[in-house]
Amino acid sequence: MNVYGIRAIYKFEMARMWRTLMQSVLSPVISTSLYFVVFGSAIGSRMGDIDGVSYGAFIIPGLIMLSLLMQSISNASFGIYMPKFSGTIYEVLSAPVSFVEVVIGYVGAAATKSTILGLIILLTARLFVDYSIDHPVWMFLFLVLTAITFSLFGFIIGIWADTFEKLQIVPLMIVTPLVFLGGTFYSISMLPPIWQTITLFNPVVYLISGFRWAFYGISDVNVLLCAGMTFLFMVICLVIIAMIFKTGYRLRS
């Protein structure tokens, strides 16, 4: 195992985050705050409790997930896209590092960033609503697992993308709708039965559901299923990345 190699990549990526601290932390915090103000306070005050949880508190897990997903994907995809774009990727390709080590470095750093960000948003939420966390350890595990999984996903997008547009389009066109339709702002049980079934094909439903269970002990779907689905998605991403490195897809000509 090339531990120094992993450390070099990880440190490089974390340094990049410190340089862009403002946009890395500030913009998700501001946008999440706006959601709390609009949905939590303004509209939420006219909404009834859902499963005994106030509406403002109900949307917290979903909003954290929204930022976590977007940030994980953008951090990781940008992290690997930039060296491809600038040409500095040659060094990683010519170095004695295995794909696992490259992934640990880049994805580890991206997941670290978004986990920290998720916790910051959690603290920010405190300014707007009161909430409790029934299962803090599970909450943290879901946070980390999701951060890693979607950083892996972002890593794949970063390798696949050969233009800046493509880099932006997946988070915008796919992830945002999935999160909004994944039960961030409502409980799945509030939908008509047919939509309930369709919703179950949305992977984000499991993330938000499991995460919300860790907060309030309520869940739309079975918690173990949630953890299992997230894990499954992570494994799929890993397999794709392994294949990318094996074939050199978009990395080695």
């Binding site: 190699g5 070099a8 440190k11 340094a15 040409g87 500095t88 170095a95």
Partner: peptide, 25 residues
């Protein structure tokens, strides 16, 4: 090709390379 990072310092980028190739600092 002249492919370099932009924002890193000279010291950091050279140290990075050493680490990447598996050598102790």
């Amino acid at each position: 090709e002249l492919n370099t990072d932009a924002f890193e310092t000279v010291w950091d980028t050279v140290s990075f390379s050493r680490g990447l190739f598996g050598k102790a600092p």
